[in-house]
Amino acid sequence: MIEVKDLHKAFDGSPVLKGISTVFEKGKTNLIIGQSGSGKTVFMKCLLGLIIPDSGTICYEGQIYSQLTPEQQRDLRQEMGMVFQGSALFDSMTVEGNVMFPLEMFARQSRSEMQDRVEFVLRRVNLADAHKKYPAEISGGMQKRVAIARAIVMNPKYLFCDEPNSGLDPRTAILIDNLIQEITREYNITTVINTHDMNSVMEIGEKIVFLKDGIKEWEGTNRDIFRTDNEAVSNFVYSSELFKKVRQMYLEERD
């Protein structure tokens, strides 16, 4: 579980995050949504410790990040997995090398144990045949799956995904969403996903935090989002005709 309390961050005097407080629960897919420039990426980078907030606290299972020593912060980061928007795979390494990397850096295991673990996670993300390929030789969807495999190879307690299905076709995007949700439940980890994708919101949004201009405008589940009377959320989520119709159908069915 991650607890965020009154988080503030400004750049060059311009506030980007204005007092965000929320809780990201364990074993659930927690989504951060909002328009471009609403502060989602800065918020996620604060959660990852890549940006230091001006004030407020981020608490990981009782440990307040800002109160940890740099060594303790690095140790905590080893319990985090991250799937970047562009996958951020190491170009000079094969798929296997990328997934093996965190194990080689930190795990105290024999080579064969590491190899077994890599085999296992690559099978888990349905990439059993891509070991020797380089990132440039595989598709965007496969790169995302490699990034997920690398993120979970160390059995993280926290999984962060920055727009995991951006640039993917709808079918692959759904596969990636489902994979993340399955992994979250299977390993009981705290997953935080930064997304624009409304399919993801509807499919896997077990907890949704909506940001607007650096403020937490609304939070709830994907079911709550159908019923919300918050104008900002409605305008954002139901900006397309398709989703307006889906909402109408849902409300009619419920009534």
């Binding site: 140790d75 970047f84 190491f90």
Partner: peptide
């Protein structure tokens, strides 16, 4: 390409 961020996140 965020590879440095990936290294930092891994600790």
């Amino acid at each position: 390409t965020e590879q440095i961020d990936a290294l930092e996140v891994m600790g």
